[in-house]
Design a protein around this nucleic acid. Structure first.
Lengths: 344, 344
DNA sequence: GTGAAAGCGCTAACAA
DNA sequence: TTGTTAGCGCTTTCAC
């Protein structure tokens, strides 16, 4: 097996034909150019023999099109994101595109660098779950003509197409469930402040309160990011002051936060739902198998992934009907044992 | 903001210098070539002004080096894989490399295509979690000089560097724990047959039996892949025949299988560990929070990811000390409530 | 200190 | 039906 790769040139040389002929055959337009069947066969044969594989780099440079898309995710180890990434990868592959993956790790500097990198790689389009606190770099790229779709988090009043979840409505329903079960003192453990996702979910929390004429105690809204530790730490504090605050339920804005809360409750020996009700954003395949099955706000990652790809390729293929570039998918409330009726 | 990107050519033109000068400056070797400070400054300035970003495609073509690595994973939505992917991405980024992600979806055809694709993209190296039932395509590429590292699954007696878990030892310890607790009739729900991972784990199961002089009942070894459904279906069958088989414990070879088992036990109202003990490969941050905290065989993904990257770059940088290219990281048994002592 | 020019592998317009 | 050739954006040798 030779170490230096075969090129169309080497095929052309061994056969005594020209590179264009080889190129045409390799691109399957041999017939169209009425290249003789035997030439076609011969080319395929030597290609095989020389173990030829086309050089995508050269092709990309020439065509100014790479057939790649870039994906930037804050944390692929989060199941919700990894499922979306999978969807994106699969759909892209079907369309003949490959995926460049970047993990921004929740760090805006990395996000900016990753974006620059993808630009330098001339990816044909970008799907990003932005950190969500800054959009200038995204807007600049988009305005410059690079196909781009935001997923999960977006920026209000900024002209960047997105597909996300109707977080507010989901949060509203979740909190109404609590309220309808007699809860009026509900803690909200939030994620990263300033992100649309968080804002919407907290807004849903607030709206549920308003709708039912319940005073909002701002001190009940705590936390700072979507991680496990945040959930754990904030829950710990809440549990320690349960007598003072009279909190009877927690609304968790993310799956990792929820795990932290569960850990804390376990440590502090606080029974769910007897002593504390819990409802959480994000459904997982283990949600019903936890020590108390958790009521969740499910949002379908598959659909979001699909929509994102659809939106992106409509930009790439320039078939864009420039209407409704923004999509909010609905949520679905899954009721389980973690919410209990109380007499208020 | 102009739509057509600036190139070193356009910078050279606006400044009336040559492309080589610009190239040198952009690559930070301006001083080395004793290019005048004002020229350097001017070039940087216009680069900024024209919003120049280097074209990695062109650079790659010229250098025959892409500063990318390819990653092929059977299922990134599996937390264990996604964590490894994250590790790989992060380390690569630190070294100035980007990641091409492919999800083989457990399909050998896709795996082969993905590999071909990465080859065509001239990635500088490949990290793959192979489906594990075929290695010819991998070996061919490796023999041809492409840096390659297998992760998690490997092929015995095939000269392909890998970093994996000491699955056999882990399985051995897990089953010894069961045996030491009086269990002798242990079911094993296996994953994809023919993969090293599965073989090793089943071997560990068998070895534990042999070591303790327990007859192995081959009919107790069931299942066919690492998915949730497999765990669910096999557990259902086991639970229905509990009286006949006298099975007292299940050894699950993977995290998704375990979730399926838990679901089945819940449905069939079989209490863990009172009626059935359970121990599982793969630790997750929710393992201790399940309705029965699960004893697990933990294997540290971070270390595996790091080792894989290390091995890969030692090949890429050709600093390879050609010894010990294979790594097996140890497992760690985490004991929780899901295993109960029984009087045998 | 700076520039000219070849060439990485491929495509496609133009030629024959 | 097939070939010639320019050029995608960049690096680098050689020249001055």
């Amino acid at each position: 097996m030779s170490k230096n790769k075969a090129t169309i040139q080497s095929i052309a040389d061994t056969l005594g034909v020209s590179v264009s002929t080889v190129s045409r055959v390799m691109n399957g337009v041999g017939k169209k150019y009425r290249i003789s069947t035997k030439t076609i066969a011969a080319i395929h044969e030597t290609a095989e023999k020389l173990n030829y594989t086309p050089n995508k780099i050269a092709k990309s440079l020439r065509l100014k099109k790479t057939f790649t898309i870039g994906v930037i995710i804050p944390d692929i180890s989060n199941p919700w994101f990894s499922k979306i990434t999978m969807r994106i990868e699969e759909e892209s592959r079907k369309r003949g595109y490959s995926v460049f993956l970047c993990n921004s790790n929740g760090d805006i500097t990395i996000e900016r660098d990753a974006l620059k990198l993808l630009e330098n790689w001339s990816v044909d389009g970008i799907i990003i779950v932005p950190i969500g606190i800054e959009y200038k770099h995204l807007l600049a790229l988009y305005k410059n003509g690079k196909p781009l779709v935001l997923v999960d988090r977006f920026f209000e009043d900024v002209e960047l197409p997105y597909v996300s979840t109707d977080d507010k409505q989901g949060a509203l329903e979740a909190n109404e469930l609590l309220i309808n079960n007699g809860h009026t003192r509900i803690a909200c453990i939030q994620g990263l402040r300033g992100t649309s996702q968080n804002t919407q979910r907290v807004n849903g929390y607030k709206e549920a309160h308003k709708k039912h004429g319940i005073q909002i105690d701002e001190s009940f809204i705590v936390g700072s990011d979507f991680g496990y530790d945040n959930g754990y730490n904030e829950a710990k504090k809440i549990l320690k002051n349960l007598k003072d605050t009279q909190i009877t339920a927690i609304f968790s804005t993310g799956n990792q936060i929820t795990l932290g809360v569960l850990k804390a409750c376990k440590e502090e020996n606080v029974k769910i739902p007897e002593e504390l009700s819990l409802i959480s954003f994000d459904e997982n395949n283990y949600s019903e198998l936890l020590y108390t099955p958790i009521s969740t706000v499910s949002h379908i990652d598959d659909e979001i992934g699909n929509k994102a790809i659809e939106l992106l390729f409509s930009q790439i293929d320039k078939n864009t009907i420039e209407e409704s570039t923004n999509v909010l998918t609905p949520t679905h409330l899954i009721q389980r044992a973690s919410v209990q009726k109380i007499s208020s």
